[in-house]
């Protein structure tokens, strides 16, 4: 699905990511973990086109066989053509727009294609009306999934924090991604919200979208991920199933900590 090889990202003298290679398989939830400053978000920014890697390739293979060299594509094409969606560590919603508008903006390219270069739609002609109805229907589907249907007409900025996190995920899903990249989706959530998030992520996987997530909450990581990549100082120090990674002595030394097994819920 996603194949990262030899990825290096340099900021001046600093090597934030160093010769990183890993694979994320289709239909899996792949987690990237590591201590603060390990280069996790940098990897994400390279995959989603916000940074251009210094060296290395990132190749995405669609289920239909099409391949996309993400390291060479402009940022917006990674979302619109390669269908890689992402969320942000600090939530980036359109706060002054309603929940529904947020979800419709995410379908911009599909809706735009139905406006007949804008001219027809301005005149109220063409198939835009039908396209918008379909867009609202899709938004409705995700609103039901995240339990925010009743608040569809409220501004996104007025939602509680947990709901904003879920909305950001729903918005990303509205571009019909094949790969969804989540940057610390459980940060700041209480245990109940965190559990709801797990269910939402499992549901997204069930609908056929692969996931890549950065997370510090080991409860979320160990419970739902199929595959874990551990980074430290920009280098990969471990790669495998949750059980393998938890038993890996280098990971315990660098990140999980020794003799504190009870802090890591099974």
């Amino acid at each position: 699905m996603l194949s990262v090889s030899g990825l290096t990202m340099r900021f001046g003298g600093l090597k934030a990511v160093d010769e990183l290679s890993f694979e994320a398989r289709a239909g899996d939830i792949t987690a990237v973990i590591g201590p603060n400053g390990a280069g996790k978000t940098t990897v994400f920014n390279c995959i989603t086109g916000f940074y251009r890697p210094t060296v290395g390739t990132i190749v995405l293979t669609h289920p239909d066989g099409g391949t996309y060299p993400l390291q060479r594509m402009p940022g917006h094409r990674i979302a619109s053509a390669a269908r890689v969606a992402r969320t942000f560590q600090n939530i980036r919603l359109f706060a002054g727009m309603t929940v529904l508008e947020n979800l419709l903006v995410a379908q911009h390219n599909t809706l735009m294609a139905a406006t007949g270069l804008g001219v027809l739609a301005v005149l109220g002609l063409g198939r835009y009306r039908a396209a918008e109805a379909a867009g609202v229907k899709k938004a409705r589907h995700w609103l039901d999934a995240i339990g925010l249907t009743a608040r569809a007409d409220d501004p996104a900025g007025a939602l509680p924090y947990g709901a904003q996190r879920r909305l950001e995920i729903a918005r990303a899903m509205c571009i019909d991604p094949v790969l969804l990249c989540l940057d610390e989706p459980a940060a700041g959530l209480n245990p109940r919200e965190s559990e709801e998030l797990n269910q939402l992520l499992l549901r997204i996987r069930q609908e056929g979208c692969s996931l890549l997530l950065i997370e510090h909450d080991m409860g979320v990581v160990m419970r739902i991920s199929d595959h874990i990549v551990v980074l430290d100082h920009g280098k990969k120090i471990s790669d495998g199933t949750p059980a393998e990674v938890r038993a890996d002595p280098t990971v315990i030394a660098a990140y999980l900590g020794e003799g504190e097994e009870d802090e890591v819920p099974a």
Partner: peptide, 13 residues
């Protein structure tokens, strides 16, 4: 509202 979020959603800024 947010240019970076727009880019992440495939909007040609």
């Amino acid at each position: 509202e947010d240019e970076i979020a727009c880019r992440s959603l495939g909007i040609n800024v």
